Simulated scan of single mutants.
Amino acid sequence: MTDERFTAPFWDERYGSVTRIWSGEPNPQLVAEAAGLAPGTALDAGCGEGGDAYWLARQGWRVTAADVSAVALERAAAHADPDIADRITWQQADLLAGWAPEPLAYDLVNVQFVHFPSALRGPVYARLAVAVAPGGVLLIVAHHPSDLATTMPRPQEPDLFFTAEELAASLDPGQWDVLVAEARPRLATDPEGREVTIHDAVLAARRRS
């Protein structure tokens, strides 16, 4: 049985309970890794309220933004600037129910802070990796396991966390060139207003042509 935390009803309720959950700004590691890429087609898996999709569209990408929550997608579509709205396709998709994007279809597959238990995580990421076109980039960013020891709010479930090096080891070296696999530090503010250093697990890999 799927943990309710990973279902559409859970996320619809969470998004529906407040006006906004996220900042609306792009995730910093997306900006760091994608700013130098030539715009093409992008899949933003687990897009939430659309911050990453908006940024990609502004850079000239044509974006498929997918999320399990219809409430999040409706909110994201409603707040998209008119000048980029036609560059984004919003799609409801349940990654744990076996949804798979079109193979070899995207020049960038962006997956930011999608945390599933290890038994579920591998198959989901494998399906997303298949969607990367030859020459395209797979970018996966997550909270690093070391964040469990910080004062930032994180679920105290080690199985939800992983390193970029672990992900890199799961990629076929005959098909992928690993560009980045590291724990990248950045500053954040915890709920008590204290500045803390956290780490993102950042994997960027390019599918060989």
Rank of each mutant, 00 (worst) to 15 (best):
E166F: 06
R62V: 08
F162Q: 09
R208N: 13
A205M: 08
E102K: 02
A80C: 12
D107E: 14
I88Y: 02
I84V: 15
A80M: 14
A149V: 06
Y125K: 03
A34D: 07
Y125T: 07
L95T: 11
L167H: 13
A201S: 15
W61L: 02
D44L: 05
R154N: 13
D12W: 05
E13T: 15
R87E: 10
P134W: 13
V114C: 14
V178L: 14
F161N: 11
A204W: 00
R75H: 13
A93S: 13
F162A: 13
D83F: 11
A8P: 04
G40F: 00
W176V: 11
D94K: 03
A57W: 03
G46Y: 00
G50S: 06
Q29E: 12
R154H: 15
E74L: 12
G36W: 01
T189H: 00
A38L: 09
L56V: 00
D177T: 14
L104H: 13
T189V: 11
D86N: 05
T41C: 05
E157V: 15
A34R: 04
Y125A: 10
P191Q: 13
A204P: 01
A70W: 10
L108M: 04
A183V: 09
P185I: 10
H79P: 06
G60A: 10
D81L: 10
L120Q: 12
G36K: 00
L138C: 06
P173S: 14
L73M: 09
V68A: 00
A77V: 02
D86P: 00
S69E: 02
R87P: 05
R20A: 12
D12Y: 08
A38P: 03
T19Q: 13
A119M: 01
R20Y: 02
S118E: 13
T163W: 01
E49Y: 02
M1F: 13
L43W: 10
P153S: 08
F10A: 05
P117E: 04
P185E: 09
L96D: 03
V202M: 10
V202G: 07
D94I: 05
E33Q: 11
D94F: 03
A72L: 09
A34S: 10
D200P: 08
A183W: 06
T189F: 01
R208Y: 08
D147T: 12
Q156G: 14
